[in-house]
Design a binder for these strands. Structure first.
Lengths: 184, 184
DNA sequence: TGCGCCATGTAACATGTTACATGATTAT
DNA sequence: ATAATCATGTAACATGTTACATGGCGCA
């Protein structure tokens, strides 16, 4: 359902093809919502049936024909309704935490190794966010207000990962102290 | 795939029925990994086929027969392999952020309303975590080391939500300042 | 010569949710 | 009375991933 409204939202700014939408997703939303082209084409076809979109086909000789989608009045209404409705907290699905829950079977160096690997991945993700942040906002935002909103969203990613990193470092520390205490 | 190993992990501590596993999930892992009974029964059947589990059927007259699952040697090996393998960062799927990204179509009070609703939900979730935390750990953990790991996992939930809450409050602030500036 | 971009799509599979179904027992 | 707990399952659907498929153009 979310994908549907995300697509509506982008098509509300301008008419686009499925391919364009795919690129926009990987240029912007990718890090807090991703979608493959399979999913996008499928969802667009459904929305067309539901009358939320209209389609214009552009004949091309060299490449496959383009299908440009635009939002309809009904689509606009549906988007507005969805936007105004409060969202529940997202369900958490955190594989790494599942692993740590069951990790008592492993020896301490292996656990610490898992945690350190996780830290490294967090650090490189953070770096990515920090460099992309301004770049993306400047490129796509169309007003001060929109820029503020987009910056906030990206900021959310950054603080979340910083927090996660702090947690992981603290956990490594605790693990080390536990095994030192055992050794004595 | 995660569900599979989560189930293996619990069955490694003690043999259990599908129903027991369901209850354990909702008593412990629920807030960072949830599963319905449909999924659990289905996955157990698959794992049995794959030889990761063995099954003992207990005849009952009053209630439906119990099927008690135990982990096999192969299951144990599979679990160890999975536990030692580092996990990628979890894909982020954050509906609320999608909504905020597209929220520029809404007027400021509506946006602030969305954010405040989100804050409230975060606060009540946090309260839940903080009260459940010790309780769960004390009840299920079988050693100091396990207790440490489980506490860390629950702590992760707490710091994550605290961080999210701070972000949301800051965003409300920023939104207010923006609209004040506009009014002037 | 081979790779990546453009632009679409399908098929098969994995995962997750909701609703339907049974039927006895125990607690309020 | 009625709701909840025990204990299993199926059917249908929604969502998400991977691999397969086409075919011209431009670049190294």
């Amino acid at each position: 359902v979310s994908l549907k409204y995300a697509l509506l939202g982008f098509l509300d700014m301008q008419p686009l093809t499925g391919y364009d939408l795919m690129k926009m997703f990987s240029a912007t939303v990718k890090y807090y919502w991703s979608a493959t082209h399979t999913q996008i084409y499928r969802t667009l076809a459904q929305m067309l049936e539901q009358g939320l979109l209209s389609q214009e086909i552009i004949q091309q000789t060299k490449n496959p024909n383009k299908k440009i989608y635009s939002i309809t009045e009904r689509g606009n209404q549906a988007l507005l309704d969805w936007l105004g409705t409060p969202e529940d907290l997202p369900p958490v699905r955190h594989k790494f935490l599942v692993k740590i829950t069951l990790a008592n079977k492993l020896d301490t160096p292996t656990i610490i190794n898992l945690l350190e690997n996780y830290c490294e991945k967090l650090r490189s993700r953070l770096e990515l966010y920090r460099t992309k942040n301004r770049e993306i906002t400047e490129k796509y935002a169309r007003s001060e207000r929109e820029k503020f909103l987009w910056n906030s969203v990206l900021e959310n990613g950054i603080v979340t990962y910083e927090c996660e990193l702090k947690w992981a470092e603290k956990t490594i520390d605790g693990m080390r102290r536990l095994s030192d205490a055992d050794a004595r």
